[in-house]
Design a protein around this nucleic acid. Structure first.
Length: 164
DNA sequence: TCCAACCCTG
DNA sequence: CAGGGTTGGA
């Protein structure tokens, strides 16, 4: 889901996880997940942008993330480890834009400001896409749903399943 | 003062 | 990822 939405509201999450009994805990946990997802995402972007700068890249337009990019590999490994589905083009576009924004900011020396990333976050937060309806369909591949269901993993889930 | 994000750490 | 401290706007 992260490939479509980086900043899901609790309402959106509830709409896409009809089989999850939301309570204050579950909700905050899922919000926290996306927060962690964003962290990983932005860290990769910043690292890659700085790498490009040290490599001598001057035009941010040159920074485009393709499916054979090393950066893509890292992101896919993190969010879609089992290659359960195809990453949408909209994500590659947003990711490329993010990379370019970091490139511009660092190039301009904005990173001396403690909160220099905020403007970038604001831009990216407006680029969330609609999530395909199939994601909340009951007939959606069970394997895929299970991977994103908070009730199916973690210490609580293991305890419930009697695995510990 | 509160609460939602963010930052930093394990 | 989860915890816990920090932050900035309502």
């Amino acid at each position: 889901m992260f490939f479509f939405t980086r900043y899901p509201s609790s309402n959106l999450l509830k709409a896409y996880f009809p089989d999850v009994q939301f309570n204050r805990c579950i909700t905050s946990q899922m919000i926290k997940w996306f927060s962690n997802f964003r962290e990983f995402y932005y860290i990769q972007m910043e690292k890659s942008a700085r790498q490009a700068i040290s490599d001598g890249v001057t035009n941010p337009k040159m920074l485009v993330i393709l499916r054979d990019s090393e950066l893509f590999r890292a992101l896919n490994m993190h969010y879609n480890k089992g290659n359960d589905f195809e990453v949408p083009d909209c994500f590659l576009e947003v990711a490329s834009l993010t990379l370019q924004e970091f490139f511009r900011a660092v190039s301009a020396g904005k990173d001396s400001d403690p909160s220099w990333k905020k403007p970038i976050y604001k831009i990216i937060s407006k680029l969330d896409s609609d999530i395909p309806e199939i994601f909340k369909s009951p007939s959606y591949p069970q394997e895929l749903l299970r991977n994103e269901d908070p009730t199916e993993r973690g210490a609580a889930g293991q305890g419930f399943l009697g695995l510990s």
